[in-house]
Write a protein that binds this DNA or RNA. Structure first.
Lengths: 355, 355
DNA sequence: CTCACCATTTACAACGATGTAAGATCACTG
DNA sequence: CAGTGATCTTACATCGTTGTAAATGGTGAG
């Protein structure tokens, strides 16, 4: 189908098309962008010429001229987690639907990467940035005078940028309450920060919800059962549980702050002969595809990843149209998804008792 | 730290820096690129000026001038799989080390996306493309007269482009032989195409290896135990096993063509009361992080994802330097990783026998 | 003191697309 | 048949950077 094409070492430009169609370059531009009226016969000639030369507009030139690249940046802490994969998938799909391309960045490995991205905005090559902040939290955003178009995802305790979030505190409270109702009495929070340490807003809020649920049930959570996890990955989750066990802490349920952490936890529990949910209840966060297929299926907090992506892209698009509009925070609905990993009503977990 | 900055609505350009440093724009350019000698005092003045104005070179302009963006495209069929996440992670990390950014694309959803990517090369905004072909296989590549710099990953049966691959046939043969040695006699290939259907080269080769292992053992594989899977995801794997069971096929081991497929298969087996490895042996491909943490841990074919990314980026860089050099195919070493999902020596699986 | 010669630095013109404003064309109206 | 719009097309300048070639300044030899 593409066989009978002229050998095209240097790609055809508007000037070439114009010459072939016997019009000016600007007319070609008008045909391409549709930004001005072009008579039917002229349009035909131009379109034929474009087809004949396999013309593709040079985006660099267009960008240089009018300032927009059509590329948005997506910066996530760790691209290898299941949630990152899901989110990337959703963002790329939705961005493509809008004619935008996605440039992807990873921030966790390098301390200054987030700051760089925000402050340089990839040297004009991206129009805006969707950022899941971890390291600098809001500080990169705080210190900049004039921000590039940025949408933060996840909880952030400031109002200077647009953001999309789920109510992590409430969600954590719900999942914790659920596990208490299933008979757990010594719940572990996996992902909350150690005391005094810096933590992401997300971690803080989930920990808060965990505690709130205890308080509402007339119980209280124990400091030795509030564990930090780093990184928030399968390996991190497994390691945290190893520590928990070797520290001789008694527990009968684990509220992991991501599904990946939960998967790691389950592995470590298994290694120590502890079964889910008979001995220990287990829940996660994010509802990645894998959660439903785990054995037993994982109880988790779910929300629509696609909605999340749409909301972020909407906010970004609106910001690009009007840089000075008031910032908005878009909440995304979540729901508790109860599956086998938190057992059955009336059957309390046996719990882990150190020898 | 960034507090005392001048309010900068329009970003500073080289001209601004030049004015402040009392030199010509070209001298600023020379300082930035290091492409010509600049005396020490002048360099100092220019660098001070750049710092003062927080100068960031405009990549669009640079690209327009010299044709390179520093962005490479990464096109994968399905971004939500664990393997995609791992590979993306590796490519982004390695590309960043080389000062390149990664633009990500997803090809499975749309038939013509691959072809578009190859033929338009994102309208000059990417320097080259790393492509995991699924749909068009090599045909997009076949039909183009002059190709943009492309590196294909995975097996492809042609020699017109650079490519990185593992020896899928051999790997499949090894893992299959291993399972036969563990006592399985009715192995299922999960991911090979149905007869007469178009399949990716990867699928064909893995199926070939599966058969070769049988032949080498004096056995033969049965057509009803060679199943196509679509998509190559957890859900696809689960569905395929459901079909297998409801079709009343007898089997005692599953060679899944990706780890995700294996995970889905394990879920479906569990649903039918079949245990891994006591009733059915199970293996995957790719060694994603999750495989080691699964219960039981998954036997799989592993290879270094980072090496894979490095090789692809090396080939692409070499191609960018010399477009007319001969194409190269870079093999990546693989190894069989035996874990619990294929049982223990001497303990053959009980197998699944339809009622 | 002049001249050749080196190291730096500069002016200018691209790269390709598009906004602006001016020019061309044509159909009508008075 | 000149005049008035309305419609379409064009010339020109510009976005920010960098290759080319020419200009500048300073140094040491003659």
């Amino acid at each position: 189908m593409l066989a009978n094409m002229p050998p095209r070492s240097p790609r055809a430009t508007m000037k070439d098309v114009a010459a072939l169609a016997r019009v000016s370059p600007k007319t070609v531009s008008n045909v391409v962008t549709g930004s001005a009226q072009v008579s039917e016969p002229t349009r035909q000639r131009v379109e034929d010429a474009m087809r004949q030369l396999d013309f593709v507009p040079n985006l660099s030139a267009r960008t240089l001229r009018n300032g927009r690249t059509g590329i948005i940046g997506l910066a996530l802490p760790d691209l290898s987690t299941a949630f990152s994969a899901d989110l990337t998938h959703a963002v790329v799909q939705e961005a493509h639907r809008r004619g935008q391309a996605v440039q992807i960045e990873e921030t966790a490995a390098e301390p200054d990467r987030e700051h760089d991205l925000v402050s340089r905005a990839r040297a004009h090559l991206i129009d805006g940035l969707i950022l899941n902040p971890v390291r600098l939290e809001d500080s990169a955003v705080e210190h900049e005078e004039s921000l590039p178009p940025v949408v933060l995802i996840g909880e952030v305790e400031q109002t200077r940028t647009d953001r999309v979030f789920i109510d992590s505190r409430r969600a954590a409270e719900e999942v914790t309450a659920h596990m208490l109702s299933r008979g757990a009495r010594r719940l572990v929070a996996l992902g909350g920060a150690e005391h005094g340490e810096r933590a992401t807003a997300t971690a803080r809020l989930r920990l808060q919800g965990f505690r709130d649920a205890h308080a509402a049930a007339g119980l209280s959570s124990a400091p030795e059962r509030e564990l930090g996890v780093w990184p928030w990955s399968i390996g991190g989750g497994a390691e945290a549980v190893e520590q928990l066990v070797s520290a001789g802490v008694e527990f009968d349920g684990i509220v992991a702050f991501t599904d990946s952490i939960a998967m790691g936890a389950r592995h470590a529990l298994h290694r120590h002969g502890l079964s889910v949910p008979d001995d220990v209840l287990l829940s996660g966060f994010d509802d990645v595809e894998h959660a439903a297929y785990s054995i037993p299926p994982l109880t988790t907090v779910g929300f629509d990843h696609h909605d999340y992506a749409v909301a972020a892209l909407d906010l970004l698009a609106a910001r690009l149209d009007d840089r000075s509009r008031a910032t908005r925070a878009e909440p995304i609905a979540h729901r508790l998804i109860v599956r086998g990993s938190t057992g059955d009503p009336g059957a309390a977990p046996r719990g882990h008792r150190p020898a």
